[in-house]
Design a protein around this nucleic acid. Structure first.
Lengths: 117, 117
DNA sequence: TAGGGTACTATAAATAATGTAAGTAATGTC
DNA sequence: GACATTACTTACATTATTTATAGTACCCTA
């Protein structure tokens, strides 16, 4: 996460593939280690930072923050801050985020089937 | 690619997530930098190593080999070697590989829509 | 004998992603 | 004043993935 080197071959390759293949573009957006899991949880409704953390015991706060920021940048989730103390921040899927639902469902079905091979 | 440290936290997290979320499991399988692109090309029929290479100008032979091997391990593609000189090797999707087709289609549609936001 | 074609493999290096550990700010409660 | 709560941030370490470059084996053709 954080910094990518825009002059790297890797970056160029990703760009090129994303440009010509929308499915690769999509995969890059939801392709972080935790992104899909986060989106899966949010499909059932908005959640707070701390709730997500509890739902995914393995994730660190840093990673959760990074992934949420990336999802926010990509307009998959919205972030709402309530000016309270202690702070409260809620994350919710955007319309285009919700549209990932059928894809996730298909991936899940396919994954189950694949596991049982 | 190649070696992962099975004692790392990263590995453990991936395992745990894959176990409980079939969609994450699926995403891990098709999640390499080039995997989805390769599968996309193969959906139209079998291709040789060299043909894939030409279709994806940016990929190195090493990467192509690694990704194909991973796909083969995961039963997404079959590898057929013809004992000829010069050698000929054909890659083709397995049945479960072909079942990725609707998913890829959806990803593509979603990706297009997302791009136009 | 030299060079070409095909599908690789080996090794090293660079880049990217993830994890660890500690610290911050604001305020309310004990 | 010490401590708890919440949602982070920062600096650094580790691991994973991708790229770069060169070389291999086989036989055929010129």
């Amino acid at each position: 996460m954080s910094k990518v080197k825009v002059s790297s071959t890797n970056f160029a390759n990703k760009q090129a593939l994303s440009d010509e293949c929308s499915e690769v573009y999509a995969a890059n957006i939801i392709g972080g280690q935790w992104s899909l899991a986060i989106v899966s949880w949010l499909i059932n409704g908005k959640l707070r930072f701390g709730q997500l953390k509890k739902l995914m015991p393995g994730i660190t706060e840093r990673m959760l923050t990074l992934q949420l920021r990336k999802l926010e940048e990509n307009k998959i989730v919205t972030r709402t801050v309530y000016a309270e103390i202690p702070p409260r921040v809620e994350y919710e899927l955007t319309p285009i985020g919700y549209e990932l639902k059928p894809i996730i469902k298909h991936l899940e079905i396919w994954g189950d089937k694949h596991k049982s091979l």
